[in-house]
Amino acid sequence: MTDALSELLATRPWVLADGATGTSLMNMGLAPGTPAELWNVTQPDRIRALHQGAVEAGSDLFLTNSFGANASRLRLHGLTARVGELNRAAAEIGREVADASGRRVIVAGSMGPIGEIMAPMGSLTHARAVEMFLEQAEALRDGGADILWVETLSSLEELKAAAEAAQRAGMPWCGSLSFDTMGRTMMGVTPAQLASAVERLPNPPVAYGANCGVGASDLLRTMAALVASGNERPLIAKGNAGVPRLEDGHIHYDGTPELMADYACLARDMGVRVIGGCCGTMPAHLRAMRDALESRPAGPRPTLEKITQLLGAFSSTGEDSLTIGRRRH
């Protein structure tokens, strides 16, 4: 059976995903140290408002409020026994908003990193990682998620565990790593290694790519390397809207809606199929991104120089990504 994202991608060149969950909830009053996922049952109206804001801004896909709702992360708050409850509630709220939208909107069940280091460098075994991802995946499935969305990972070992959990849950999935200094993840993975690794999985993701990291320009440098790998699987880009700052007790990012509109079109012209934002990306950014994607004609594949001209300088030399990206152009 074809999954919802593949069906949507078959009818259009790009899909607009959503923006920031954490930033938005903190600006709604989420206290530091409080697990955001608890709001699925204590403040469900605010979670509905979060998703509704993305849908009204033009998103075709949004992520559930379940990023940290695995047993390991919830254990830090004494909530291990509520993994199923919080994930099901996250998916149910998302399903409600999507079904009421009047158009096709995909509910993506967000699953972030477990929060422990995988063996052999750490103590987290493959079997235990699969178990925790599976508990979350089954609850998201039962709550009505269309697809699983594994994001902000840093190791291929953890990605493999998530892939196995998705397969056991009978769910399609997408995978996204976070690249930072020198074009690598925290665990040293390069974009080329990710592009190769996803094709060796028994159940490759529907789409894969990068999210979070530093800023929009750095994110697109990573995407250039993924494009240059030759892997033709649909790509995901969810970049941050600049860097954070605190204003009047609220977190704001310095990336303007205009900058994120440029980022979205650059991503599209690079060949990215699923385009969204991460930290700091608010409905105003999403609305500008949607308007730009619909109104600006497609252009040639952007060079790294074009990316920095429109979005600002890269935060580091990013030797790996920079070399790969230039070779393709």
Rank of each mutant, 00 (worst) to 15 (best):
E258R: 13
A17C: 14
R168D: 04
K160M: 05
R75S: 15
A165S: 13
D320E: 14
L38Y: 04
T317N: 15
A241C: 14
L219R: 01
T21S: 15
A292W: 02
G183C: 05
A237D: 10
S321N: 08
Q52D: 12
E151M: 02
E131Q: 15
T190Y: 00
G312M: 11
T80F: 06
T125W: 01
D262S: 15
K306P: 00
A288L: 13
R221V: 01
T185K: 00
R296E: 06
L124E: 03
V243G: 00
G318D: 10
F314I: 14
A4P: 05
L79W: 01
C212V: 07
T281N: 04
A98Y: 06
K306A: 15
P234H: 02
H329M: 14
H250K: 15
C279P: 03
R128N: 07
E116T: 04
L311V: 10
P204H: 05
M260R: 03
A20W: 02
R82Y: 11
P300M: 09
E164K: 09
G144T: 05
V55M: 07
A163P: 01
F133Y: 14
E7F: 04
A100I: 10
A10E: 14
E85V: 14
S295I: 09
T222Q: 03
I324F: 03
D146H: 06
P113Q: 07
A261P: 11
D146A: 00
A31D: 07
I275Y: 03
G209I: 02
H285G: 09
M118Q: 05
A90M: 10
A298S: 09
G215C: 13
N87F: 08
P172T: 04
T281W: 02
R233K: 10
E138G: 06
C174A: 13
L226K: 00
C212P: 05
